[in-house]
Amino acid sequence: MALETSVIQTKLVDKFDTIVTDFVQQHDIFAFEVDATSIIEVMQFLRDDATLRFNFLTDLCGIHYPDATPDKQFAVVYHMHNWRDNVRIRIKCFLNAENPEIDTVTSLFLGANWQERETYDFYGITFKGHPQLKRILNMDEMTSFPMRKEFPLEDGGRTDKDDRFFGRTTDNC
């Protein structure tokens, strides 16, 4: 591996100081947290710097942490890959519960477009400056965000799984 993770860490800390924190090696991927307000600058630096060269945005997705503090309820995770040195990194940006929003990275990577739409669709995370932020896999009329943990897997109004049909009531089961 030509590019050491310590180099990535030093370069990021030199440039961004406390914006980039919590560096940790998780299995084969070097991971860290980035302050959500600076995601564009950090990603641009990672992509364009002559030694870092993270040229490929592999993956972008959201996470919901219902048990975390209100300012860390949601996270957007970016996986980036440097193809020349073959190094992968994982960037996590935490967002608050009331107004989860983050800048779009479609200006850096065209492929982020649909992945951000998917994240919006399922988590309700707003990507500021996104050219076409509307639902993608769910129907447009939907009002909830189904991948949030409080959203039940099955429709509570279903009658075909009613206990009464199985000879049980809630009292005698």
Binding site: Q26, H27, I29, A31, T58, D59, I63, H79, R90
Partner: peptide, 20 residues
């Protein structure tokens, strides 16, 4: 308690699994 990302070369490209 961990986080892993594992890619495989699928029929169409990088098929990745990000598991927490």
């Amino acid at each position: 308690v961990t986080e892993v990302y594992h890619p495989v070369e699928g029929g169409n490209g990088e098929l990745g699994f990000y598991l927490i």
